[in-house]
Nucleic acid binder design. Structure first.
Lengths: 346, 346
DNA sequence: CTGAAAGCGCTTACAG
DNA sequence: CTGAAAGCGCTTACAG
């Protein structure tokens, strides 16, 4: 394959001039430029970025480390990262770790060997991983954390405000006139979503009815179990907020099987906005995380570090969730009848 | 950052010896080895692969070009590619093109500049892309085509046998005793699936009833439309094969709304095995493409080219589909009653 | 078993 | 505006 020397020779100039032409650094005479362009064309010359990186100390590549690329949520983030990197002229080296400490360490190490200019990583639970990341940061390789905070690490961090997402979801139900709103949640996870639920109620001046908060597995079956329990109540809820979609779907389908009309009798809101939410019958109203935006932001954060060697204070970006309204939520029954009455009054 | 020179100096040997130690090429004395190991440890030395690639002409990176990484189907393939590449000590540079000719060309070009050792690409419809790929192949960069054949290109190719997948689906219905099997298909796509349907029937000695073949849009609504038409028949089918899941789901849900019991009255089989199939009510039996395997195979094909410079005849690997049996298919009614009769005879 | 030296393809001051 | 030369970090024959 042709090198910069071949081009220089064919154009009758020195390699330095060709290099300047290629990089737009320093002046190149009109005539030389034309001849270089012609030579490049003729030889089908393609510069070798690896060789270039040897002197510039910049590879133009970033690493993106995830635990499961096949997860649709991750895949969409990856797309956001890649698209944005591409816009800025960077390549993304993507690594899948399966949440395996060994693989993650190897990924990080290989990424360094390939001289990536920076790394975006979705959180591993792995202490060794964190230690290695700290080492990379110390060596001056910028790192951006995506999705979850990693305690001992001080660097940029981007994630989603799930607390506010829950508040938005419950507010939506409140606005529809619901005042008996149940929450299906987990014992050990998604606390901020649960907290959002409670705060939204309190904020609205409503008491939190402990019987309406059901802890369960965050699975389809967990949703079924929780709904079974809620339907046994003497005064069942008129709306249900579940901290994730799969659970919401399980609950909703169980209610349907029990003859409950949705959203006529009970409204449902889920969280995450997985594809299933859109295709459910009825389509499930859900809180969406801005996945693409998450990826974009992560790269942008990294990019400002890539472009400067000045120390930058660690930044934290928390993106808002968005409520996607579908068919599973409607005005509360009591309100409906009140509306009907008032309209018949006219 | 420490270089091989720093290591050599600290260990009191020459860089050549350190290099040999690092690569396991040529002998290194026991004593030297120990001291080199210690020096590497002490300095936290990490070799620079880009520098290495300058002499070896091998970057240890491959490129993977897709049109939409956020598509779950693609994401899973990507995972298969990355996992396998990792196993063999390669890194994957992933590029998203959105099916945009401009972006694809830039991706391919950048990949070459980064000196990837090979490229796996999911088919673009783009002539310019094909021309560029041909150029890369001519330059000795191995290319593997994944998912669809690209006419003018002669290189390795891996995909799925959707024709046989359709045959398997229909055979499954035949085995359950169905003989009036409808096919919901498209006018201009997925021909091999439709052909599989017809051949399976013919093979079983059944006539193809044209009224049972409904052309429609391959969308949820298309499925609804097709099902509406099928239910109007005086002698409706006892089973439906749809050439993709979304359509199958639309058809199935419409049938349910019309009071049809599934799989009691009608069995349904879809194609692609998307997540929705698993979570549908009832869960949809579907033909799955081996996505991970597709990615694995693509890399393996590439790998044999990576490891040799000998010319290799272009190979084509067609992976079989797999039937995932769920709740939407059951023994045909007539057969059921026959079975009941025979059992009451005893 | 090991060292000295050339070379991989590029960029970057430094002169001119 | 341009060329000569050194250097980036590594590997690879070649001697010894």
């Amino acid at each position: 394959m042709a090198t910069i020397y071949d081009v220089a020779e064919k154009a009758g100039v020195s390699v330095g001039t060709v290099s300047r032409y290629l990089n737009g650094s320093g002046y190149v005479g009109r005539k030389s430029a034309d001849r270089i362009a012609a030579a490049i064309e003729e030889l089908g010359y393609s510069p070798n970025r690896n060789a270039r990186s040897l002197t510039t100390k910049r590879s133009g590549m970033i690493g993106f480390v995830v635990s499961d690329l096949a997860n649709p949520f991750t895949a969409e983030i990856a797309r956001g990262v890649q698209d944005t990197a591409d816009e800025f002229g960077y390549c993304a080296l993507i690594y899948n770790t399966d949440g395996n400490a060994h693989r993650e360490l190897r990924a990080l190490n290989t990424l360094r060997e390939h001289q990536v200019d920076g790394i975006i990583i979705t959180p591993p639970e792995i202490p060794e991983g964190n230690a290695f990341l700290a080492e990379l940061i110390a060596q001056g390789i910028p790192v951006v954390l995506l999705g979850r905070d990693m305690e001992p690490l001080v660097t940029d961090f981007v994630s989603t405000d799930t607390y506010l997402g829950a508040v938005i979801a419950v507010d939506h139900l409140l606005e529809l006139g619901h005042n008996r709103i149940a929450c299906i949640c987990a014992r050990n996870a998604a606390f901020s979503r649960r907290r959002g639920y409670m705060d939204a109620l309190t904020q609205a001046g409503l008491d939190v009815d402990e019987r309406l908060i059901v802890e369960t597995e965050l699975t389809r079956q967990g949703g079924v179990d929780a709904m079974t329990q809620l339907l046994k109540l003497e005064d069942p809820p008129s709306a249900v907020f579940a901290v994730n979609d799969v659970t919401a779907l399980g609950a909703m389908h169980h209610a349907i099987r029990r003859g409950v009309s949705i959203p006529g009798d009970i409204s449902f809101v889920g969280f995450d906005d997985i594809v299933l939410a859109e295709y459910a019958q009825p389509a499930l109203t859900s809180v969406a995380q801005p996945k693409l935006q998450l990826g974009r932001t992560a790269f942008e954060l990294l990019h400002t570090r890539l472009e400067t060697s000045d120390p930058i204070e660690p930044r934290r970006v928390i993106l808002p969730c968005e409520l996607v309204r579908r068919e599973s939520t409607a005005v509360a029954r009591t309100v409906t009848s009140r509306l009907q009455r008032s309209s018949s009054d006219e």
